[in-house]
Amino acid sequence: MDFSRQIILPQLGVSGQKKLKDSKILVVGAGGLGCAVLPYLAAAGIGTLGIMDGDRIAASNLHRQLLYSQNQIGLLKSQEAKKYLNINFPEVDVDAIDFFLEPSNARDHLQNFDLIIDATDEISARHLLNDFCQELGIPWVYGSIHQFQGQVSVFNFENGPNYKDLFPIADADAISCSDAGVLGTTVGLIGMLQANEAIKIVGGFGKVLSGKVLIYDLLSCNQQIFEFEKRPENNSRLEQISFPFISIEEVIQSKRTVLDVREKDEKPEILKENFLKTPLSTLAEKVELFDRGEEICIFCQTGKRSQTAAEILHQLGFTQIRLIKGGAKEILEQLSHEKDLS
């Protein structure tokens, strides 16, 4: 393939192109994000690409997973993606790994690559990726989708922050694309941004999104970058920070923004104008909806998740955070009492 148009870029040049050729990148997931990442990496001249996915192609995939077609339904994504790359980019060495990332196989496969790209849609897989990449000293490029919003970041790059510095817990109730919905252009854009970070990392140029999370909203074309820091002690959870408390009565009598960080369908349900349902599992994806300078009050069922949510917002630059004394049950009782008095 002729790479002359990108070699003339002074930031890349011949030496940078050779770095791309010598690099080995593993893409974990061959769904929507993977289908955007893989052809751009191959076209850029990455020498070796691994594709790790145990899933099979379904009809519902085709609107956003453009490497596949109707006659491939039921076939393994990793193998079909490899066929596509072999036909269109024969100079790229492609390794198809036909199973999902698990603790039993992670080390054996991740250690063969210089860089990992997260193209999964499971938070538990990202925590697993993070643990093994940290152990092996391998940087990885994160990407996630929630409806029309997407996030991109780089973890474990040159001793920088890792995934658990930003997202300390694995929430099994996080909503997947199959439940929340997804548009093909959303995964396409976020996947290209991931590929771009990977090319910058292995090519050795540009400013990498290490210690930063980019959030893009395709409905508004609004893009924001928030910075976060590496935690010096236990990276399995965020460092405990003390936040001021506010009483239920004071919250109810004011118009402060209140975040209910419980997951969907948790009872009791609380309906009030300034109470926003913002599950902890998707909190970081929705931060662009709030003003970092406004006062935000947080509650959950017992208080544990409120503390975690406050620490995440603090990491992302929010300065006016307060925890509500009491959980959802106490808040509902007070709301009922206020209603009776009125």
Score class of each variant (00 low, 15 high):
Gly45Tyr: 12
Ile215Phe: 00
Leu209Arg: 05
Ser4Pro: 12
Ala36Gly: 05
Arg231Pro: 02
Ala180Cys: 03
Asp265Ser: 11
Ile117Gln: 02
Ser104Cys: 04
Thr185Ala: 15
Ser306Thr: 11
Gly143Gln: 06
Ser23Glu: 05
Lys339Asn: 09
Lys230Arg: 12
Lys286Arg: 13
Lys200Gln: 03
Ser178Pro: 11
Gln72Asn: 09
Phe167Ala: 04
Arg305Val: 10
Lys304Trp: 08
Phe299Glu: 10
Leu341Thr: 04
Leu259Arg: 11
Gly181Glu: 08
Glu158Asp: 15
Gln240Phe: 13
Ser4Leu: 15
Ser342Ile: 06
Ser69Lys: 14
Ile97Tyr: 11
Phe318Arg: 02
Asp171Val: 07
Ile97Trp: 04
Lys264Thr: 09
Val28Pro: 08
Asn234Trp: 01
Pro161Phe: 08
Ala119Pro: 11
Pro244Arg: 12
Val141Phe: 00
Asp165Trp: 04
Leu316Val: 00
Glu249Met: 12
Val92Gln: 07
Phe100Gly: 00
Pro90Glu: 10
Ser247Gly: 05
Glu122Tyr: 03
Ser124Val: 02
Ala30His: 10
Gly50Met: 04
Lys277Arg: 05
Gly184His: 07
Leu12Gln: 09
Asn234His: 02
Asn222Ser: 15
Asp22Ser: 14
Glu135Leu: 03
Cys221Met: 14
Glu122Phe: 13
Leu115Trp: 00
Met52Thr: 11
Leu128Asp: 10
Glu135Cys: 01
Phe290Val: 00
Glu266Ala: 07
Leu283His: 12
Leu332Tyr: 11
Gln224Asp: 01
Cys300Ile: 00
Lys272Pro: 04
Phe299Asn: 11
Arg322Phe: 07
Phe113Leu: 00
Asp2Glu: 13
Thr186Gln: 06
Lys21Gly: 04
Asn274Arg: 07
Cys177Asp: 12
Leu219Arg: 13
Ser4Arg: 13
Gly206Leu: 02
Ile296Asp: 02
Ile51Lys: 09
Gly143Asp: 01
Pro268Cys: 05
Leu313Pro: 08
Val28Trp: 08
Ser104Ala: 13
Phe89Ala: 13
Phe205Asp: 12
Gly160Lys: 02
Ser104Tyr: 09
Cys297Ala: 14
Ala195Val: 03
Gly191Gln: 02
Pro168Arg: 00
Thr302Cys: 14
Pro39Tyr: 11
Lys264His: 13
Ile138Ser: 08
Ile51Gln: 12
Glu294His: 07
Val28Ser: 04
Leu209Ala: 03
Gln301His: 15
Asn274Gly: 05
Pro268Thr: 07
Ala81Ile: 06
Ile246Val: 11
Ile46Thr: 10
Pro232Trp: 02
Leu9Asn: 11
Ser124Trp: 07
Val14Glu: 14
Leu280Gly: 09
Leu76His: 15
Cys297Asp: 06
Phe226Ala: 12
Leu209Pro: 01
Ser281Pro: 00
Ile175Arg: 01
Lys329Gly: 08
Leu280Asn: 07
Gln253Glu: 09
Ile8Asn: 00
Glu333Pro: 05
His63Tyr: 14
Leu38Ser: 10
Glu273Val: 06
Asp2Ser: 10
Asp171Met: 05
Glu266Lys: 07
Arg231Thr: 09
Lys21Gln: 14
Lys200Tyr: 06
Leu66Thr: 13
Ile97Thr: 07
Met52Phe: 01
Gln147Cys: 10
Met1Pro: 12
Ala284Trp: 05
Lys255Phe: 06
His127Met: 12
Gly184Met: 14
Lys339Val: 03
Pro39His: 12
Glu80Asp: 05
Asp108Thr: 03
Glu338Ile: 06
Leu20Gly: 10
Glu229Trp: 03
Asp53Phe: 03
Cys300Ala: 10
Phe100Gln: 09
